[in-house]
Each structure stands twice: as structure tokens, then as C-alpha cells.
Write a protein that binds this DNA or RNA. Structure first.
Lengths: 188, 188
DNA sequence: TGTACATCAGTGAACGCGCGTTCACTGATGTAC
DNA sequence: TGTACATCAGTGAACGCGCGTTCACTGATGTAC
């Protein structure tokens, strides 16, 4: 082998990481095999030593990125209402709005996923489910109908972030973020 | 001329209408010039008698679709809180979820628009602004901070619809729609 | 009203170009003796 | 430990293919007399 098995694993990890960022920044159709491989420091031909096809890559990257976001979520230190508030404030921050490549894959890819293949959608659905569970836990028995609240909260932060990103006018964008942040203190 | 001026206007309107549906169903990258023209009953060459380029078409279609949605919004009969509730119930309905081609362009295209050109984003931003104004009016003086509420409500319904569409599991999808519908009665 | 001519909506072949994929090849790595 | 051989990660040229765009052409329409 031109490279050891360990090096192959590193290459694969590098491809997945770069693709995870590109995917969130440019959408499911936004990465080309050649560009991706060149960003990973290789030529395009080697791609097929790691993935069956481009579609297969997208599926794996989506699953990878969802699992990563999920792990970060469950690793957060602050619990209860304070933890939830902290999370919402980060989620609806300018920093998160302006850095989709490292941000929530749900907000970055939701409309793309709706048009994607079943494998991709299944990975996405699992991530949404885990997210809802985490939020539900934050409500605990503090509030009635915690799961219903969790789903609404998720909808509001995803919608708010997506709108803040799409909109052209910085003032409206900021207004959306701060409005949702503020109003959610009532439901949360 | 092979066709009269009136016929040209009809052709253009037909292209815009079909593109408006395809765009919402398949995303900003989802329509090809050849497919679009053939769906409009013509061959691809004639496209450039109506639009400068594909990108120019996308811009015009987005503006057209936003204006259309806006007109429908302002034409709704029921006013006040009842009108708002009625609208939310439609927005978060299975019918709307399953028919993006005739539904809200904001929810259908938000993440695509975030990556699109300035012209497209400007048209989108204008539409969002008008939507927020309409919602703000529905709150009127009934509630404090009506504009803040309007932006949060918009975020929640857009996010809820987008998630309900992306998710693979019909049970979760329906649960998202009904949760947001129910919880929004508190804020609205 | 009729005639001659210019206009231009729509046609369909042809064009580059980029993209996903294939494939023969290289040479370091892993393995068997 | 050393040698011979098979393996296979990565290379880079080449492939189809679809897509946006161009262009010479057509013939009905609009206009000028």
C-alpha cells in the first residue's frame, strides 16, 4: 500500500471533516468531489477508495455531522433552565449565524434534506429526535407538556437562525435573533 | 414575429408560474432551463428571449413568488386574532407541508436563499419584512411588543414547517406541526 | 384595404464546460516464508 | 531478521453526460406606404 492503514483512516477522517464544513456552508449540492479531495490534500481519483459514490459521501457526512452536534449537545455542562438559556443565546448569536460551517446542521441543511434521499433523511430525523429529547429534559417537570414545548422551541430557534441567515439586511437579521431570544424566555 | 406580443407575455407568465412551483419544490438549483421550457411547452432556445440568464430567472421568479404570497396574505378576509389563528393552522397543516410548490416560499427556500446572490436575497428580505408587518398588525395593540412577537411567531412556523418536511418519520412530522400549532396559541 | 418589408418569438443543432466516475499505473506497506 | 510477493491508497489522464448558452434559421406578426 502506498499509505498505511492508519494513514487511510486519517485521510478518511480529513475528508469527512472538510465535507462536514463545506456541506453546512454550501448545502448538500455544494461540494464537488474534486474540490473536496484537493482541500483534503489529495487528487480526486482516490475518493472512491473511501466512498462508493458522492451520494454515499453525503449520507455519511450528514450522519457524522449530526452525531457530532449531538455529542456536543449532551456534553454541555450547565443543566436545567440556566443551561437551556445559555444554549439558546449561543444558538441565536451572530457568531452562530455567521459560521454555519461549524454550526447546527439542522438549521444549515433542513430544506436540502427535505429533498434528499432516504438515508440522509433518516440520519437527519434521528438527530432531530435526539435534539428534541435533550430539550425535553431541560424542561423536565418544571413545565407542563415538555415535549410539545421542546418541539416548539426547536422550531423557533431553527426558523430564527435560518431567517437571520437568509435575510439581506443586517438590522432585520439582528432583530430576528434578539426577538426570538427574548420571547423564548417566556416559553422556556 | 412567430408569435404575437400577447402570446409572448403569456409564454413568459407560463414560464414564471411553472418555475415558481418547481423552485419551491426542488430548490433554487432544482430547475434546468431545458426542463422548464419543455414543461412550458417550448424548446430551450427560446428561453433567452425572456430572460438574460438562468440566474436572472431565479431572481425574477423569487420576486414573483414572494409578491404573490404577499398578496394572498393581505387579501385574507378574517382579521384580528381569529384571522391569525386560521392562518397558523393552515401554515402548519399537512396540506401545506406536502405541497411546497404552492406554499410559502420563505419556508421552501430559506436555506437556499442564504447562499444565493444579492438580488435574490433582497427580494426575499422584502418579503420577510412584509410578512412581519402583516403579523405585527394581527397583534395590534392586543399584545405588548407586537413586532417582537411577530418575528418569533414567524420563526416558529417557518422552523416547524421546515422540520416537518425534512423529517422522515410521519409521526414525528405530525407531532412537530401539532406541537407548534398548539403552543403558539399562548404567544398569539 | 392591400402590399412589401422588417421584426422578432420560438426552433433545434451545436458549443464549452464542469462534474462524477473509471481505470491503468505506482510504490510503500503488510504478510508469509 | 531477512527476502519475496501480494495488496491496495493515492495518482492523474480520460470518459460520458447534462447543463447553460449561442446561433443560424423559420415564418407569423406588426408596420409603413
Amino acid at each position: 500500500m502506498a499509505r498505511s492503514q492508519a494513514e487511510k483512516a486519517e485521510s478518511r477522517a480529513r475528508i469527512l471533516e472538510i465535507a462536514g464544513a463545506e456541506l453546512r456552508a454550501r448545502g448538500l449540492d455544494g461540494i464537488g468531489v474534486a474540490d473536496l479531495m484537493s482541500a483534503a490534500g489529495m487528487t480526486h481519483g482516490g475518493f472512491y477508495k473511501h466512498f462508493e459514490s458522492r451520494e454515499n459521501l453525503v449520507e455519511e457526512v450528514l450522519a457524522h455531522v449530526m452525531a457530532e452536534a449531538d455529542a456536543q449537545l449532551y456534553a454541555r455542562e450547565r443543566k436545567g433552565r440556566a443551561g437551556l438559556m445559555e444554549y439558546i443565546d449561543w444558538y441565536l448569536s451572530q457568531e452562530h449565524r455567521d459560521g454555519p460551517e461549524a454550526g447546527c446542521p439542522i438549521a444549515a441543511l433542513a430544506t436540502d434534506v427535505a429533498r434528499a434521499g432516504e438515508g440522509t433523511r433518516t440520519a437527519f430525523t434521528r438527530g432531530v429526535g435526539r435534539f428534541v429529547d435533550w430539550l425535553t429534559d431541560r424542561f423536565g417537570s418544571r413545565r407542563d407538556r415538555p415535549r410539545e414545548r421542546a418541539m416548539t422551541l426547536l422550531s423557533a430557534i431553527v426558523g430564527g437562525l435560518v431567517l437571520a441567515r437568509a435575510v439581506n439586511d443586517p438590522k432585520i437579521s439582528e432583530e430576528i435573533l434578539s426577538s426570538v431570544r427574548r420571547q423564548l424566555r417566556m416559553i422556556a
